[in-house]
Design a protein around this nucleic acid. Structure first.
Lengths: 225, 225
DNA sequence: ATTGATTTTAAACAATCGTTTAATACAATC
DNA sequence: GATTGTATTAAACGATTGTTTAAAATCAAT
C-alpha cells in the first residue's frame, strides 16, 4: 500500500498510519521513510522538518476524510428527524467507517486531545462548519427562545456520544464481550441508538423508558420500523 | 508542590503532571527527576525503569481521583432520577473538578485513547465497577425486557457526554467565546444539562423541544426546580 | 555528449534519550 | 569506631533521535 511515483506522496501516505499509532514524538522519521521506501533525508528534503510533515499529514487526514464521507446535501423540506439521523450517521461513519483506513480519525483524536499550536486553525476550519450545521438542524425543533449556550450544549451532547466510540473504542471493547461487540456495535447500530437517544431527548421520538408524565404509552424502544 | 521526605513519593508526584502533559514518550526522566529534586538515577533505582514508573503513576492517578471524588452511597429508596443526576455530577467532577490537579484525568484520557498493555487491568478494575453501577441505575427505569446491549449503549451515551468535555475540552473552548465558557460551562452547569438530556431521553423528564406525540405540553426546559 | 539543475543516497553529525556504573555519603549494628 | 548495608550522587555509556552534508545518480535541455 501507499504506492505512488511521487516520493512526496509516498512519505505523506506512510506518515499517516505511523503518526496515528505512535503519536508525534514516538514516531520516527526513519520508520516513516522506511515504510515509504525513501531515504531518511527525504522528510527534510520535501517537508523541511518532522513537524511540518506532521502538520501536513493531519490536514490531509481531515481533508480526505471529509470528502470521503461528506455531509448529505438535504433538499428543502427534509424532515428534521431525518437530517439529525443522517448527521449522526455521517459523523459515525467518519469516526468508525471501514471504508477507509482507520488511521485518519485516530490521528485527529490525538489532535483533539492535545492540539498542536499549528493545528488549531484546522479545528476552526473543519470542525466549526459541521458544528454549525448541527446547530442549524437543532434550531428547527428547539423553541425559538432557547439560549445559545443551551443549543450548543445539546450539540455537544450529540457530538460527544459519537466521538466517544472512537476515543474510548478500546476501553469499550474491554467492557463488552466479543459477541456483543460484533453483534450490536456496527456503525449502523450505533447510529440508530444515538439517534433514538437524541430524538427522544428532543421530544421527537418515544422515550427509551416510561413516559415523563404519563404511563399510558406502552410502545417502547421499537427495534426496527 | 510535591514535597515529601520520601524521594520515591517525590518522583511519583512529579511524574504525574509531566506524563499527563507530554505523554509517555515525550516525557523525559531527566525532566521528572529535576522536578522532583532527585538524581537522574532515582527513577531506575526506585522503579526499575521508566515504564514501570509510568504504570504506577497511572494507577495512582485513578486511585487518588476515585477516593477524592467518590461515588455517593445512596440509601435504599433514593429516587432513580436523583441517583442518575449524582452519578453524572460525580463523573463530571472527576473529569473537570478543580478540587485537585487536572493532570489526573488528563493522564487517564491518554490511556483511554491508546491503552498501554500493562494498564488494561486498570481499565477493568476501575472502570467496570462504575459502569456497572450506572447500568444498575438504568435497570430501575428501563423495561425489564430491555436487552443487555441496549442498556450498555444507553450507558455509553451518558458516559460519552461526560468524558467529551475532558477529551475535547480544548476544542470546545475554541468553539465558544470566553464569555460563554465562563458563564455556562461550569461543572454544575454541564451536570444539569447532561442530566436533562438523559432524563428526557429516558422519559423521566420533559423533552428539550416539543413533545413526541402531543403538543399540549408547553412546560419546557425549566432551569431550576 | 555536455552542461546544469534537481533528485536521491550514504554517511556522519550533534544532541538527547534511558540506563548503568562506580564512587561517595549516610545510618545502624556489632 | 570499624563494618555492613542502603541511599544518593556524578559521570559516563550505548543507543537512537532529527538533521545535515557532500557525493552520486538522474534527468532535461542545449
Amino acid at each position: 500500500m501507499a504506492n505512488s511515483d511521487d516520493p512526496r506522496d509516498r512519505i505523506l501516505n506512510a506518515a499517516g498510519p505511523v503518526f496515528a499509532e505512535k503519536g508525534f514524538q514516538a514516531a520516527t522519521v526513519r520508520d516513516i521513510c522506511h515504510e515509504a521506501g525513501v531515504n531518511v533525508a527525504g522528510v527534510n528534503y520535501y517537508f523541511g522538518d518532522k513537524e511540518r510533515l506532521y502538520i501536513e499529514t493531519v490536514k490531509r487526514a481531515r481533508q480526505i476524510r471529509g470528502q470521503q464521507v461528506p455531509m448529505p446535501d438535504w433538499p428543502p423540506g427534509t424532515p428534521t428527524e431525518e437530517k439529525l439521523r443522517q448527521f449522526i450517521f455521517t459523523m459515525l461513519k467518519r469516526m468508525l467507517g471501514v471504508t477507509a483506513a482507520p488511521w485518519q480519525p485516530r490521528l485527529m483524536m490525538r489532535e483533539i486531545l492535545s492540539p498542536t499550536a499549528a493545528c488549531k486553525e484546522l479545528v476552526q476550519e473543519y470542525f466549526r462548519p459541521d458544528f454549525n450545521l448541527l446547530l442549524g438542524i437543532l434550531d428547527e425543533v428547539l423553541p425559538p427562545d432557547t439560549p445559545l449556550h443551551k443549543r450548543q450544549q445539546i450539540g455537544f451532547s450529540i457530538v460527544g456520544q459519537c466521538v466517544f466510540y472512537r476515543m474510548a473504542g478500546e476501553v469499550v471493547a474491554l467492557l463488552l464481550s466479543d459477541e456483543e461487540r460484533m453483534e450490536h456495535y456496527s456503525v449502523e447500530d450505533l447510529a440508530e441508538h444515538i439517534s433514538q437517544v437524541c430524538l427522544a431527548s428532543l421530544g421527537l421520538g418515544p422515550p427509551l423508558a416510561g413516559s415523563f408524565d404519563d404511563e399510558s404509552k406502552l410502545s417502547q424502544t421499537s427495534e426496527a420500523p
